[in-house]
């Protein structure tokens, strides 16, 4: 059974008079333990998709079923519970609480889960250990590097042992090398049986995942098409770079026209 079932989801934002169809009927399944990336250019609806999957928002139409639970019509408290129990978030800009140290930041979801103190402490330390930040446990976020901050965020996402990890451009604010270590962490998380969904606009990162879900203009682009499309584009770009394309006379004329400022 699928961990995530998305059925004909539409999300319409109303900005003034205008209606923006952020998602125009998307259906997809993500199985338990899958490691997928959701890609697309900006405006494609991937962020909206992410917010809906993460229960930060509800769809205008259609249904989303997470771990057998329909969250598309759930109330605010239920959504909070789902976010707390079933989902771990990792954001591009880390979203750590500046006033709290590493330990307290990681502990936060457990507090809202009403976990008793001893168990909470054990879990928190485990999660920090897992991302290898035991020595920075009392540091504040502003004393951490970007990579460390993101690892704290991952520890926080993992601490409540959620079934789904959602990451929104997790490497977006990091340099390539640090990004690589973060991606490694996600691979590890996925290997341990979690369902992980990465949202990215970077095809290289998307290549990391066994499965890519591509969105464009609020619609799903088929996996095959997507694959082909991307490589075709890449090949074309390569070709364009190596040998200039033959240019038609008309084009040449036009170009020359422009270049020469009207000289025949």
């Amino acid at each position: 059974m699928a961990m995530i079932e998305v059925r004909d989801v539409r999300k319409i934002y109303t900005v003034g008079e205008q209606k923006i169809h952020a998602l125009a009927g998307v259906s997809l399944d993500i199985d338990k333990g899958e490691y997928v990336s959701i890609i697309g250019p900006s405006g494609s609806g991937k962020s909206t998709m992410m917010q809906l999957l993460g229960c930060l928002d509800t769809p205008t139409e259609g249904s989303i079923i997470l771990d057998g639970m329909d969250v598309s019509r759930a109330n605010s408290n239920t959504l909070s519970w789902v976010r707390n129990q079933k989902i771990g978030f990792v954001f591009q800009n880390f979203n750590l609480l500046a006033k709290l140290n590493v330990y307290e930041n990681v502990e936060l979801p457990l507090i809202y889960a009403n976990m008793p103190g001893r168990e909470r402490r054990k879990r928190t330390l485990e999660a920090i250990e897992a991302v290898g930040l035991m020595e920075r446990i009392n540091n504040r976020p502003n004393q951490l590097s970007g990579g460390q901050s993101q690892r704290v965020a991952i520890a926080r996402a993992l601490v409540n042992r959620p079934k789904i990890i959602l990451a929104d451009e997790p490497t977006g604010a990091l340099d390539t090398q640090t990004g690589e270590t973060i991606l490694q962490l996600f691979r590890e998380v996925s290997r341990r049986g979690n369902t992980v969904a990465l949202v990215t606009h970077d095809p290289d990162i998307a290549m990391e995942t066994p499965r890519r879900i591509e969105l464009r203009d609020g619609k799903l682009v088929s996996a095959q098409e997507s694959h082909y499309h991307r490589f075709k584009q890449a090949a074309q770009a390569e070709a364009a770079a190596e040998e200039p394309q033959p240019v038609s006379i008309v084009e040449q004329a036009l170009r020359g026209d422009m270049n020469n400022g009207g000289n025949p």
Binding site: G54, L56, S76, N77, S80, W81, R83, N84, Q85, F89, N95, L96, L97, K99, L108, P109, Y112, A113, R156, N160
Partner: peptide, 16 residues
């Protein structure tokens, strides 16, 4: 506001 958003994202209810 942002702090509140983060708390909500990790599972805080409105009442919290």
């Amino acid at each position: 506001v942002r702090e509140i958003g983060i708390r909500r994202a990790v599972g805080a209810r409105g009442i919290d």
